[in-house]
Design a protein around this nucleic acid. Structure first.
Length: 788
RNA sequence: GGAUGGGUGGUCUAGCUUGGUUAGGAUACCUGUCUCACACACAGGUGGUCGAGAGUUCGAAUCUCUCCCCAUCCA
């Protein structure tokens, strides 16, 4: 009789339940909080500061991709912590700018520009509180090991004071200037709007074919336009350089109908030969393309509309009209004069104001610009020094840097943002800036100075505009390291270790942060950039509210638990690539945690052997495979690519350790003789499980903590070193395939052997010899399969 | 229109940098089994020739070229 049939039993398992219960997570969270194991204070350990992306609580639900993103950032933090780093994991919430304004308008059914600014800001200030609380609750529930105690907001006085401080610093160094440039304008709302507020719609419009005279020849050229009312602002006619019809016209002049003004005919690639007649009139500014052509051809603008959305004096007899009125009158006049060849109804992709649905106009406006063109070459060089995870995403930044054509416009005619800290002298109009330090609101406060530094005037008007929100976001590494506030902290923590972020905001957040930090500190803000892909739906398409394919992470985490969600995230999202979100996959991750839990349950019934004894052949083989696993995980963790360890661990644990090794050594493990063969098995079993738990700790912190503290130590797993010295002879790994094949062969034979109308059970004896090349493992294999 | 990434069994995915035994895994599906950690399990099985075409090579999912399709970002 072999040991497997023996009545002798190992001790009772310390773990009773046969499945991982996510409810346990709550208790573990409480322990972590009580023990305060994730605190950060300046020490002689190396700092590892994570420049975390402050999420924006702009609506419900929080994007499941963003939650997965945060789970992975936490894995970075835990990895660094286990590797002996002093980790600062700040928790910030972004609450500035347009989305909160729109949210507030909807929530309270108000219009920002039709109510008192102060009252509106008060509504904005608390509008996101509920959503923020919910978001933080999700983060905590996910086991995010961040600094929740000192969580910050980008709309706090402290944060805004720092944004203003950095602006004043740039101003003093001559890196800010005022310029008059074309900008989006909604004639209905009477204000400039940001690109983000524009929607595009195909709307029907008339394409009008007009006759222009050629000055040089007296011939006519037909020009088609959807904007005849802007005729008076036309400054050029362009034709495609490859268009044979107009080759001979390039360089000559066209005479505008009705206005009799001559303009140049010039080649430009944006003129599409197949659209209209192929000759296009360029007006300042009919659309974004006109803006581009004006810039490229160096044309002088004619301001067509004033701030009230009415045509300017430049329109002559059509001055002072609204766009539609002007359009009607101009077309009438053209028809009367026989200058129209035909009118065509077409669908035109038109930019509209998101709220009024009015077509936007482009008019020149004065705005503040931060210089960036001068820094592009330097940023380009630094981009090569920055370590990108994955490396391929550096290209997105490089492409962006190469395409930058203008400096950064930073002033916005919005309300809920950091105020531009400028007061203008009423006498000489000179801008006066305050001494940096506190948070300034020029639109409602008196200036913190008495006299204009230029003319000595004493009456001032405060600037009423705010900054582009990227002005705030781009100083996150400075804020979290207490730049301009705590020099000791700053020199300890800056430059930070790593910037984790999604790939879609490389051209904004990553770029602007580099720009600003290099301008202000002369140093790169981080050593590494970690770029995650996007969470997309099952079909691989981006989630959006309009498509209705958004997945809410909250019920998913409620149902499956944080660790399942985290393991899913790690095993599904290969670093830098988009990953699909489906509940089926998440449920699949749960199965692995259950498997791991049961391995823990099984091993918890055996004494922990910590001293390494002389190992039996099977145990030496398993240790060699374990070392291989550790090496693979190490590589993944070095890249912060959790996809690698998650899948490697699952494969090893399930398909090798549990399926083959555990079955092979059960006989020895259950043996009631405390001989060296048993000790060798117990040592190896526990060494494997404890190693698996250490490797799993950053990914699934709850279940690894629970099993670790139940079986191995009272100390938390999260402050253990992840990697331990391990010796193994990699040569034994050559048996792996043979062992698997042999086991499979035996199982197949048992399955095919029918006894009493049923196939043999796996425990039934069978007469199969162990092949010579597996002689080393013969004893364990015989025991495992009950070979006779 | 430009850029980036991708197209591998029903679905998802590894492999492609450094070309070479029956293309690995997950999931779904079918069949059987409650075998002393686990039925959220175990065992067995069906299913792909790697987007299309051409080329290089003794040999290509893996290299080169052309084309097609998808996703995302920018215009």
């Amino acid at each position: 009789m072999s040991a497997r049939h023996d009545e002798s039993r190992a001790m009772e398992p310390k773990i009773q339940s046969t499945s991982w219960n996510p409810e346990i997570e709550k208790a573990i969270l409480k322990q972590w909080e009580e023990q305060d194991i994730y605190r950060f204070t300046i020490s002689n350990k190396p700092a590892f500061v994570i420049d975390t992306p402050p999420p924006y609580p702009s609506g419900r639900p929080w994007h499941i991709g963003a939650a997965a993103h945060y789970a992975q950032i936490d894995m970075i933090a835990r990895t660094a912590r286990m590797n002996g780093k002093n980790v600062l994991f700040p928790i910030g919430i972004d609450r500035n700018g347009l989305p909160v304004e729109i949210y507030t308008e909807k929530k309270h059914k108000v219009r920002m520009r039709q109510m008192d600014r102060e009252k509106f800001l008060e509504l904005c200030k608390v509008a996101l509180d509920d959503l923020e609380a919910e978001m933080i609750q999700i983060m905590k529930g996910m086991g995010v090991s961040g600094n929740f105690k000192e969580h910050y907001r980008t709309d706090s006085d402290d944060y805004r004071a720092l944004t203003q401080l950095t602006f004043i610093e740039l101003w003093n160094r001559g890196l800010v200037y005022l310029a008059n440039r074309p900008n989006n304008y909604c004639p209905d709302c009477g204000t400039t709007i940001a690109d983000a507020e524009i929607i595009y719609n195909e709307i029907p419009t008339k394409l009008v074919y007009m006759k222009f005279k050629i000055k040089e020849t007296g011939n006519e050229v037909i020009i088609a336009s959807t904007r005849p009312e802007l005729l008076f602002a036309c400054q050029a006619v362009i034709v495609n350089p490859a268009d044979a019809r107009y080759k001979n016209l390039q360089g000559s002049h066209a005479i505008l109908p009705l206005f009799n003004r001559e303009v140049q005919i010039r080649p430009h690639r944006s003129a599409k030969p197949e659209f209209g007649s192929g000759a296009v009139m360029v007006c300042s500014y009919g659309d974004q393309n006109d803006v581009q052509v004006f810039r490229e051809l160096g044309l002088k603008e004619i301001v067509a509309l004033n701030d009230n959305g009415l045509t300017t004096d430049a329109a002559g007899q059509y001055a002072g009209l609204r766009i539609n009125q002007a359009r009607t009158k101009v077309i009438e006049e053209l028809v009367t004069s026989g200058l129209i060849v035909k009118e065509e109804n077409i669908m035109h992709r038109t930019p509209l104001c998101e709220r009024s649905k009015t077509p936007i106009e482009i008019i020149p406006l004065h705005d503040y610009y931060v210089k960036q063109m001068d820094f592009v070459p330097q940023l380009r060089e630094l981009a090569f020094k920055l370590k990108f995870h994955p490396d391929m995403h550096r290209q997105i930044l490089l492409n962006w840097l190469d395409s930058i054509a203008i400096d950064w416009p930073v002033s916005r005619r919005r309300f809920y943002g950091t105020e531009i800290p400028i007061w203008y002298c009423n006498t000489c109009k000179a801008p006066n800036l305050p001494v940096p330090g506190r948070y300034h609101r020029p639109w409602k406060e008196k200036p913190p100075f008495d006299k204009c530094e230029k003319c000595g005037g004493s009456e001032f008007t405060g600037e009423d505009r705010t900054f582009d929100t990227w002005m705030d976001s781009s100083i996150s590494p400075l804020f979290i390291t207490k730049f301009g506030n705590d020099q000791k902290m700053f020199s300890y923590a800056y430059p930070t270790a790593i910037r984790p972020q999604a790939k879609d905001i490389i051209r904004t957040w990553l770029h602007y942060t580099m720009l600003r930090c290099v301008q202000l500190t002369g140093k790169m803000p981080w050593d590494e950039a970690w770029i995650m892909g996007y969470g997309v739906d099952e079909k691989g398409e981006k989630m959006s509210k309009s498509k209705g394919n958004v997945v809410d992470p909250f019920p998913v985490i409620q149902k499956y638990g944080a660790d399942t969600f985290r393991f899913w995230s790690a095993s599904q999202a290969n670093l830098g690539y988009d990953f699909r979100c489906s509940e089926q996959k998440i449920a699949g991750s749960q199965k692995f945690l259950s498997k791991l839990w049961n391995i823990g349950r099984f091993l918890s019934s055996f004494e922990v052997v910590e001293e390494r004894p002389e190992l039996e052949a099977s145990d030496r083989w398993m240790m060699a495979e374990l070392v291989r696993l550790v090496e693979e995980c190490r590589k993944g963790y070095e890249e912060y690519n959790f996809f690698v360890p998650a899948n490697a661990i699952r494969d090893f644990t399930w398909n090798l350790f549990a399926a083959h090794y555990v079955e092979m050594v059960k006989g020895r493990a259950y043996s009631n003789e405390n001989n060296s063969a048993k000790m060798s098995a117990l040592y190896t079993l526990h060494r494997c499980l404890s190693t698996i738990l250490l490797l799993m700790a950053p990914i699934a912190p709850f279940i690894s903590e629970e099993l670790w503290t139940k079986i191995y130590s009272k100390e938390t797993i999260h402050l253990q070193p992840m990697f331990r010295e391990e010796k193994a002879d990699s040569d034994v790994r050559k048996y792996t395939k043979q062992i698997i094949d042999f086991n499979s062969m035996v199982w197949n034979k048992k399955k095919a052997t029918i006894k009493d109308g049923k196939p043999l059970s796996l425990k039934d004896p069978i007469g199969i010899p162990v092949p010579d090349e597996l002689a080393l493992f013969a004893k364990d294999l015989k025991e495992m399969h009950n070979l006779v």
